Simulated assay, not measured.
Amino acid sequence: MRAVVVKEPGGPEVLRLTEAPDPEPGPGEVVVDVEARGVNFIDIYQRSGAYAVPTPFVPGVEAAGTVATLGEGVDGPRVGARVAWAMVPGAYAERAVVPADRLVPVPDGVGAEQAAAVLLQGLTAHYLTHSTYPVQPGDTVLVHAAAGGTGLLLVQLAKARRARVIATVSTDAKADLARAAGADEVIRYDRTEVAPAVRELTGGAGVAAVYDGVGAATFDASLASLRPRGVLALFGQASGAVPPVDPQRLNSAGSVFLTRPTLAHYVAEREELLERASDVLGLVAAGALRVRVGGRYPLAEAARAHEDLAGRRTTGKLLLD
């Protein structure tokens, strides 16, 4: 089989397509014939060494396909079942070994591309809007990078919970996408200071929550946009890591809350994983959650996909076919 292998951390050029032995499942594992793979910022962090991963490794933590082989003791998915997974490495390959308890069923009406495009970011948007700060009817929330894969899903899920959504974007085309997803107000952060614009849009009150996957470039504006006792959910660092923060800043901002959540802690138990995945994929199947695929790349062009994602030249989700 073919697989993309990273032998040492570095730039996109370290993503090398190679021939590899067909994988064999261990106890409790299955082999999946991979049909579509999601490309995520965590792939870039791991490839670059920002997140340490033992080398060599096959990147990619999200994919969908069909079960090919069962390991010893597996009594869940059957051969031929349509499945997807997130937060398990090895997706940039034609076949992958996945623990059976990390797989989720893909319902009728959802294709492999849709499942691979929505699962990781959909689960992320779900835990952020349902658990980290559970959006309440009438809340106003701020979503950064609202035309990205996670951003578009955050907007839709927050609107489904009857929030008013303020979105930030960098281009007119991205503004149109955010509005189409349901954003009530859109701020061009390349033209306008975000925090003062948020204050003006909220009559000086600020927002109940900020969902910030950008990091260093947006952190100060996010903190300054909160209402008293609001929540800043810093779930990513697309622009770089946020420097150390003096806790006194949370006091002066209005006794606000800062949390740095990660998906793994919100799907650690299989019951919670299945519940969130069922919600997200069920909404996709019903047409109530729209998934935008912003680009498709052959497996051999994984490096180009990383370059485009890191360069913020894309909207929606990128896939490797």
Rank of each mutant, 00 (worst) to 15 (best):
L274P: 12
H130N: 10
G282F: 07
N251V: 13
G215E: 09
R164Q: 15
A197S: 12
L289I: 02
R227P: 09
P261Q: 00
A112N: 04
F257W: 10
T55H: 15
V110M: 01
V256E: 06
A208H: 10
Q114N: 06
P243Y: 03
V79S: 07
A233Q: 02
L234P: 03
R270C: 15
R296E: 11
R304V: 06
Q46P: 08
V291F: 02
D176M: 04
G11A: 01
P247H: 10
V169L: 12
V32G: 11
A68I: 06
A93N: 09
A195C: 04
G109C: 07
G311N: 02
D22N: 10
S252G: 00
R102V: 05
T69I: 13
I44Y: 09
G294A: 07
A305H: 01
Q114P: 08
A146T: 08
A145L: 11
L319A: 11
E307H: 03
R161P: 12
L153R: 09
V6Q: 00
T259G: 02
V110F: 00
H130L: 09
L299M: 10
A285P: 07
G151H: 08
D108C: 08
P247K: 11
A300D: 11
I44Q: 10
R82G: 05
E301N: 09
V214S: 11
G49Q: 10
T129C: 06
A216H: 14
A147C: 09
G230C: 07
A233N: 02
Q121E: 14
A145E: 08
R304I: 02
P56S: 14
L128G: 04
E200A: 14
A221S: 15
E113Q: 13
D246N: 06
L152Q: 11
L258I: 05
R313H: 13
Q248V: 08
V58A: 12
A125C: 06
G213V: 11
T218M: 12
G311A: 02
L274S: 10
V4A: 05
S131Q: 07
L70Q: 04
R164H: 12
R270I: 14
V207P: 04
